[in-house]
Amino acid sequence: MHVIADTHYELPVAVVVTCASASESPILRQRIGERFAEQPVLTERCDDFSTDRGLDAGETKALLWNTYRIRPLIDTRELWCAEKQESGFDPSSTITRPLFPDRTDTLVHTEMGNVRCRCPQTGEVRDLVFQGFAADRDTLKYRCPAAYVGEYVPGRRDLPRRRRCRSRCLWPDRSHQDFRTDRRSFVPTPHGSPSWHGGYNRRTALE
């Protein structure tokens, strides 16, 4: 049984029963389209849509935001496997990949969409400071943590001048990440942020 419910009033708005062998994600996207077509007022009232990680899919997150401008609060599964096959991989470490492979190797991101920086001198990794989401540009805004607190970073001198900022940090003072190319990892409300947890906890309480 698949139930879509209002997490504010805790009332179901759509229910469908399928056989257990049916794939859940396509059913969810179908029900979302049918329900919002039948009740367009729900689209206007709905700010976010949350499900557990079993329904994590880039297509679903893209449908919610691209079509309905509804923020997906969907837990992300860890599917990256290539790094786990490499020799010397530490199972306790978090896998990261370059954010801009063709531009810089100091900015990386996790599968959850958390953006981080790596000092080229010390190897220390820091989380960038989330500065909000620009809906008109479909862009997540992050700021260098060193610039945010006015901290000097030794590795700054190892970077070309064009990759430094006035605040003596490792990368430009503000990094605008266009997430339209990876809707699964990058969402308007970043995974793990206070706003993300607030909406996701309402789903947990309702379930």
Score class of each variant (00 low, 15 high):
4 I>P: 01
9 Y>D: 12
10 E>L: 14
11 L>N: 08
12 P>W: 04
14 A>D: 09
19 C>K: 14
21 S>Y: 09
24 E>R: 10
26 P>G: 07
26 P>M: 06
27 I>P: 04
27 I>T: 11
29 R>M: 13
32 I>R: 02
34 E>K: 15
36 F>P: 02
43 T>H: 05
46 C>S: 03
47 D>W: 14
49 F>A: 04
55 L>T: 08
55 L>F: 15
60 T>Q: 02
60 T>F: 02
60 T>V: 08
61 K>Q: 12
64 L>N: 00
72 P>I: 00
74 I>W: 04
75 D>R: 14
76 T>G: 05
78 E>H: 13
79 L>A: 06
90 D>C: 01
92 S>T: 10
98 P>Q: 09
104 T>N: 05
106 T>K: 05
107 L>F: 04
109 H>N: 12
110 T>G: 04
112 M>A: 14
114 N>Y: 13
115 V>R: 01
115 V>P: 02
115 V>G: 00
118 R>F: 05
120 P>K: 03
123 G>Y: 09
125 V>L: 07
126 R>K: 15
126 R>I: 05
130 F>M: 04
132 G>A: 03
138 D>H: 12
145 P>H: 03
145 P>L: 00
150 G>I: 09
152 Y>F: 15
155 G>Q: 00
156 R>C: 14
156 R>M: 09
158 D>F: 06
160 P>S: 07
163 R>S: 13
163 R>A: 11
164 R>W: 01
165 C>I: 02
168 R>W: 15
171 W>L: 14
172 P>F: 02
172 P>W: 03
176 H>A: 03
177 Q>T: 12
179 F>R: 04
181 T>V: 07
195 S>H: 11
197 H>S: 10
199 G>C: 08
203 R>F: 04
